[in-house]
Design a protein around this nucleic acid. Sequence first.
DNA 1: TTGTATGCGTTATCAT
DNA 2: ATGATAACGCATACAA
Lengths: 329, 329
Amino acid sequence: MREEKTAPTMKDVAREAGVALGTVSKVVNGIPVGEEYRLRVEAAIEKLDYHINSYAKGLKSGRTMVVAVLFPNLISPFFSKLVNCINKELTKRNYRMMFYATDYNPEKEQEYVYLAEHQKVDGIICLSYNPKLRVSENVRLVSIDRYFGSQIPCVASDNYGGGWLAAEKLVENGCRHLAMLRIGSPLPHEPLKRKDGFIAACESMGVPYMQKSLEDGMPYTEFDDFLMEHFHDGKLEFDGIFCATDSLAYVMKGTLKRMGIRVPEDVQMIGFDGSRAFGDLDLYCSTIVQPMEAIAENCVDIVLKPKGERSPSLICLPVTYEYGGTTLK
Amino acid sequence: MREEKTAPTMKDVAREAGVALGTVSKVVNGIPVGEEYRLRVEAAIEKLDYHINSYAKGLKSGRTMVVAVLFPNLISPFFSKLVNCINKELTKRNYRMMFYATDYNPEKEQEYVYLAEHQKVDGIICLSYNPKLRVSENVRLVSIDRYFGSQIPCVASDNYGGGWLAAEKLVENGCRHLAMLRIGSPLPHEPLKRKDGFIAACESMGVPYMQKSLEDGMPYTEFDDFLMEHFHDGKLEFDGIFCATDSLAYVMKGTLKRMGIRVPEDVQMIGFDGSRAFGDLDLYCSTIVQPMEAIAENCVDIVLKPKGERSPSLICLPVTYEYGGTTLK
DNA sequence: TTGTATGCGTTATCAT
DNA sequence: ATGATAACGCATACAA
């Protein structure tokens, strides 16, 4: 009667190949050994269908080839698409991805950062809403969209440039009075710069603008009120709107339609993110597209850098404008 | 000068608490020890900020508290939402999720199944397109939407019932001539039953119907041709369309609009999945909603069942109809 | 260049 | 109930 079948170990391979344990280890890890030995070991590995035990390896070496990725969720298309890119990038480098959903909850974010550290991941990539996230010195952590200080590298889109570009494009398309709508997390983070860039562009071009920021918890209906306040004799006071996200632009498009205001004939609109229906079909609106692949690539590059190596504390990646039906062009 | 700081181990805790190593292990794992000892150990753990090394534990115990999740990608809203639910469900049970994107590639699917096995995950949940996926006996694997035989449990929506429900709802809304559009993977999988249920309902109600299946690689324009063939004198031959997915319904809505056919006035349309813009805003169409949470819960329940325990080989979960603008009600 | 021996942090099996 | 000790599978320093 056969004993309970258990996965073959290096010891088994060594016995099968008639070499020492250490030799097998070297072959497996690509350390040069005699041609003769290597072939024997490889044959034995093949024959026994041997695979290295990543837990034993991780225990011994301290490296686990796993990166933790912390995002609020996978529901929002921006998040899921970015996580998809990060995963692809990690896979390309033979790393695996452990995913944690933080649900926008600062305590969970902190808890999962600790958890991931104790789980001995090789690095953490997080998109955090916790302004005072703490992280141990031992683990590389890369932040997306939130700058935590010069010790923690942050990767983001060029939000400032994107805001600027949005204003420019609206004006290029003939708008003369702009407005910006956004939902303002009260906490500072990179996407806030969308507003700064937008305003700077307006002032630089000498174009009048107004803006409405909603505090985090407020219902979108506040925006409806804002629109109504500036709606006289069937006409809006502005002819171009920059929404801080595509999601917001999508909602406002509905509101405007209900008010009988035509987009883009009466008012043009630009969003931010580059979200597409079903991930790869139509844009929801004309938009400032974030370079997901580049963000992912930079995050992974940095998170996998050797611990000693210094890395930039903030990387801003260029955005582009894309037409999506809510502007003239 | 302090030595390179390294995480405290059970040994450190034991020394600090003045007890034996084994006692610490017991406390950590909730095995009863003397009150006195327990308190001392707990204090030491607190003081040293001790955390168990999951790799050492995994090496010894064989259990890793990690489940591998294999999906084609995280771009499609159906996938990302379902993965989000699965992750939530795993987290609830203190498990972690390792994610692998298979990119619809059968070889990758097989490779990642092997990889996950060798990585000693406690289970695998996969949505696979590989008809001849092989999996070792040692790992629990749960399949979503594809039945691999009675040894591998499969969780799916009640696709047959969903198809039936779609036909019923269209007729209820006044349709008298139905059509079904779908992109047929040539391989058998549960969603194929959408068609079967639809047809059975049509025949049971005595309602005439036609259907168009596209082979996997074909461009959607084939559907345009199909519509044109059945478009005479500004009128379609049918007044109700069931699309096999919301994504398809979304595309067809565009096509119909370009043809000057009004939805839902001229033709009503029902999709399948329950996808929402931005994950939680509007439905793209009237649709048969898949119960994501229930699917996730069942997958996780089964995948975490002890190895010996038998589980059902197929679970079909009830779907619901939801109005989304492309039907009269 | 190859083989041997030790230890990584845990769990589990024993005596005590 | 507690404590000493032997694995778990691998990497590596060191000896041959």
